[in-house]
Design a protein around this nucleic acid. Structure first.
Lengths: 230, 230
DNA sequence: CATAATATTGGAACATCGTTCCATTTATGT
DNA sequence: ACATAAATGGAACGATGTTCCAATATTATG
């Protein structure tokens, strides 16, 4: 009890779960996924590595917490309007941009199934899918398809950016390299990949992402229009 | 040149890229993602850690190669018939089962964008989507949606299994725990998540997975039926 | 106000990891 | 046969996550 009072009376810049998470986010954003280290983190917080373990369980816990903070902010910054379909697109785009801005969130989300950050997204998506008029037994599949697409594309997009950064290229140069590699594949074995290599070279990630969202939304709508087919 | 002759004349159980990859797969399957270590690997192969680096660039390279071996086998074991839609479902299910059997493949795939294992899947999906009759400019979005859904759900499913194993539970017990946690969320803040908690408890992963695939296929078909909407 | 009890800190130490280095062994070509 | 190159295996390096514990700061109690 008296948590607030205590933290106020503590030394000026005392350690806390929040301050540790905040510093972790800054570190992850500036130095990438491998930049978060208990040593660099404790150095930035002017303490020792051991002190951190009083406030957090382990590194996995810390990463999930940092990820949850980003997701929570993103959900807050994405208000819901009247039209469910527009809300779903805004929600999807919001998460896409958030993962793009904080690439480490993509992989962190993949390693914490059923945990808090995922639940936040699930809930928001679910409410809008429900508002769309989907029946109870199809809601889960619809939300699952959306959730996985969003996190899948977002994560892959972020992975591209990170891999490019590691090799000292910017995103377009990296995609150029991928397109070039795909163009040199055996035409007999990889006709499709070769044919889309050009589309990979010059495309807009966000536009393409939204096209996929619309594709899934169409599938959901069609499921609503003609229910219980088969 | 004369690679074959050389490897034949080498000592009985000589090191090779293939044998290293094979041992890595066994290690990953039996001991999980953290079970692959240059020391345990070199021990199993009766050599030193340094020797491995003559055949492999680094651990990331090794992991991608092991992943590619699994994907290649899966693609081979999934023949294509006459009906594109059935082929796509078989392909999706084949990858789902492969990731379920080798959970480490899920995360390995996420870390190698544009590389060989991903291209194999992309190509097979692309050929079938093309056979489905999708127009050139919508093929990429359609394949992207399928690919991301397959890898997304597969990866999440595998992550569930691994997380459960770490905590000493089997998959159903783990889902039971997740459902229980979701049931105790605040009804005002998380109405949707609470309402689907029951569906999480007793569901068939594969059936649910296929439902999502069908959802996306519906979206693709509807895009074909009424092209150039907007 | 003094003193005991507890909460929190900081840094040394440990086990383990990926990777590098290099002396040594094995195979190949002349 | 000898020289050259390919391949090996193990010691050593730097860095990591985590544990441990003596020291300190804060709170509760007499």
């Amino acid at each position: 009890m008296a948590k607030k009072a205590r933290s106020v009376q503590r030394r000026e810049e005392s350690l806390s779960r929040e301050s540790i998470i905040e510093a972790s986010i800054e570190l992850l954003d500036s130095s990438g996924e491998g930049g978060l280290t208990f040593r660099t983190l404790s150095e930035r917080l002017a303490t020792g590595p051991g002190a951190l373990y009083w406030h957090i369980a382990n590194k996995s816990d810390l990463l999930t917490a940092a990820c949850d903070a980003i997701v929570a902010r993103t959900m807050e910054a994405t208000p819901s309007g009247a039209k469910p379909k527009a809300n779903l697109r805004a929600l999807a785009l919001g998460m896409f941009d958030a993962i793009d801005e904080h690439p480490w969130v993509g992989s962190a989300l993949a390693q914490a199934p059923g945990e808090m950050p995922m639940v936040r997204i699930l809930e928001r998506l679910g409410q809008q899918v429900r508002a769309l008029g989907a029946e109870d037994d199809t809601q889960w599949a619809a939300v699952g398809a959306l959730l996985n697409y969003i996190l899948g594309v977002g994560g892959r997009n972020a992975a591209n950016g990170q891999l490019a950064r590691e090799r000292g290229l910017d995103r377009s140069d990296f995609l150029e390299a991928v397109a070039a590699a795909w163009s040199q594949l055996d035409p007999r074995e990889y006709p499709f990949t070769r044919s889309v290599a050009g589309q990979v070279r010059d495309h807009d990630d966000r536009v393409e992402f939204l096209a996929g969202i619309d594709l899934i939304l169409r599938g959901i709508e069609r499921g609503i229009e003609s229910p219980r087919r088969r």
